[in-house]
């Protein structure tokens, strides 16, 4: 089963993504901030990551830079799901950028296309 890491500081949104993805046949793990996210990523080696941009402490782009420096994780596809507008270029190498509130079907189809 493919595993997806969900990084978001809002517990309600984490719950939502967990249910949505598990209902569609993915395993999930979650993290509430950048530091936690890197730790969980290293432990779980997820197949894909959804990433919020604006979080307490360090923001999403920092997470991505540190992820890219890790040889084992640098090829993991990242989907940005953020409430910030005009965020398309915040992480230019993200496979997709969705803005909140996002479209469920769109998210699922992007995951399907990008999960390795």
């Amino acid at each position: 089963m493919k595993k997806i890491l969900i990084v978001d500081d809002d517990p309600n949104i984490r719950d939502y993504l967990v249910s949505l993805l598990e209902d569609n046949g993915y395993a999930t793990c979650t993290a509430t901030d950048v530091r936690d996210g890197l730790k969980v990523a290293k432990e779980n080696k997820p197949d894909l990551i959804t990433l919020d941009l604006e979080m307490p402490g360090e923001w999403g782009p920092r997470f991505y830079r540190q992820l890219a420096q890790d040889d084992e994780l640098k090829n993991t596809p990242v989907i940005v799901i953020s409430g910030l507008s005009g965020n398309d270029y915040a992480i230019s190498k993200a496979v997709a950028t969705l803005s909140k509130p996002f479209d469920r079907e769109e998210l699922l189809s992007i995951i399907k296309e990008n999960i390795i």
Binding site: I13, D15, K100, F102
Partner: peptide, 21 residues
């Protein structure tokens, strides 16, 4: 506030999804 509003709307979406599933 727009960021907060978007978060709430997403969570609301989540609630509706979980309710229907």
């Amino acid at each position: 506030m727009s960021h907060g509003v978007k978060g709430m709307l997403t969570a609301l979406d989540g609630g509706i999804y979980q309710m229907s599933s």
